[in-house]
Design a binder for these strands. Structure first.
Length: 265
DNA sequence: ATGGTAGCGCTGCTA
């Protein structure tokens, strides 16, 4: 059995818990990275996941952001935030790391950036660079490392519904793509692209204006894998079914399989 | 079509 790792921006764990529970039973992931739980740690429904066989860790402050990792192959050495916490960017709770079955897993929720040219956009670029530094400080790219989450960057024009219309907006700028490329240059590969080369294979669609049904979205949810894992990546799928039905998240989950045996914790 | 929807939580912010 391969090790199955998934990532899903659930856009409120409280609103999505029932849907997530059903999806876990259906997709059978070993490790799940969640983003936008919009929850405080005290409200995290750990018991719901325990009942399904998952250990869980959460890092959230309440109303916005919030990340979690669920694992049924062990959950050790949990760390919230960056290794270098000079300016304490972790007030926003966008990064959580843990070792699961011998894989160093990070769940990331990269800042949206709002508008190009604003302080929020600059903060997004700094955050991506902080993530690169954090990984370089704490991980070996020749080891088993995955960085999973909502990167709020569409890696290239195939990942945007209309590159011409998106031009000038966030998620598609040269600067954001360069920051993502710098992460990859450290030693990570976009696992989805190891198995799919097509365009318009999106993971997020705006709730507004019926964008999902117009196929107007972006691929911004990624699993980045170090070389030893990328070499044994056997499967990758964006589960569009989970974006349908009653009360969906605006993101679909991404599922990736690696042909490795989980190491005991 | 510079609109539109969802979540949180109670007013407007974030996405």
């Amino acid at each position: 059995m391969p090790l199955r790792i998934a990532t899903w921006n659930v856009n409120s764990l409280k609103a999505r818990l029932e849907k997530l529970e059903g999806w876990l039973a259906y997709a059978q992931p070993d490790v799940v990275c969640l983003q936008e739980t919009k929850m405080a740690d005290a409200a995290f429904p750990a018991m719901a996941f325990t009942a399904l066989g998952y250990e869980a860790a959460h890092h959230g402050n309440g109303r916005w952001n919030g990340v979690a990792i669920l694992s049924r192959v062990g959950l050790d050495d949990v760390v919230a935030g960056f290794s270098h916490a000079e300016e304490d960017p972790e007030v926003e709770s966008r990064l959580l790391s843990a070792t699961c079955g011998g894989v160093r897993v990070s769940s990331v929720y990269v800042p949206n950036g709002r508008q190009v040219g604003t302080e929020h956009f600059e903060a997004k670029l700094r955050w991506l660079d902080d993530l690169r530094r954090h990984l370089a400080d704490t991980c070996d790219p020749e080891g088993k490392v995955v960085v999973c989450g909502d990167f709020n960057v569409a890696p290239d024009d195939r990942d945007v519904w209309d590159p011409r219309k998106a031009n000038g907006g966030t998620h598609v700028t040269v600067e954001e793509r360069a920051a993502l490329a710098a992460l990859e240059a450290w030693g990570l590969q976009d696992a989805f692209r190891l198995h799919h080369q097509g365009d318009r294979l999106f993971s997020w669609w705006d709730y507004r204006a019926g964008d999902f049904h117009k196929h107007k979205g972006m691929r911004i949810d990624l699993v980045l894998a170090s070389r030893p894992l990328a070499e044994v990546c056997t499967f990758a799928l964006i589960d569009r079914q989970a974006r349908k039905g009653k009360s969906p998240s605006d993101h679909a989950p991404l599922v990736v399989d690696f042909a490795i045996e989980p190491e005991p914790s």
